[in-house]
């Protein structure tokens, strides 16, 4: 079997769905962040697959930028998680309900 564009696209779509489901169902902040990373990387995979089959380098350049952005987001996210862990000693999102109204 020849692996073609469609295989990559379906794989990326599956990964994206797993990421979305992970964000919506998991309660631990770190697992949610990992699911978000999965979503971003599935989008990157889509970009690279299209880029390869369209013979257009724009998609691959885009991925460099999006990887940088993802790194910056993880940096700020972990900083926020550290401050919240200092105050509450918990990473369970269900326990963070001070602002619920």
């Amino acid at each position: 079997m020849v692996i073609g564009l469609n295989h990559y696209l379906i794989l990326a779509a599956l990964l994206f769905t797993i990421g979305v489901v992970g964000v919506l169902t998991r309660r631990n902040v770190l697992i949610i962040m990992m699911s978000v990373e999965l979503m971003l990387n599935s989008a990157n995979l889509t970009l690279i697959a299209f880029s390869h089959y369209l013979l257009n380098a724009v998609g691959q350049v885009f991925v460099f930028f999006s990887m940088t952005v993802a790194a910056a987001e993880v940096g700020i996210g972990l900083a926020i998680i550290v401050t919240i862990f200092r105050n509450t000693e918990s990473l369970d999102i269900a326990k963070l309900n001070l602002l619920k109204n």
Binding site: A12, F16, L40, A43, T46, L47, S51, V58, G59, F62
Partner: peptide, 14 residues
């Protein structure tokens, strides 16, 4: 949402 935006861009690019 960043994930949604990026995936949307990827599809439009494709």
């Amino acid at each position: 949402t960043t994930g949604f935006f990026l995936y949307g861009i990827a599809l439009v690019f494709g």
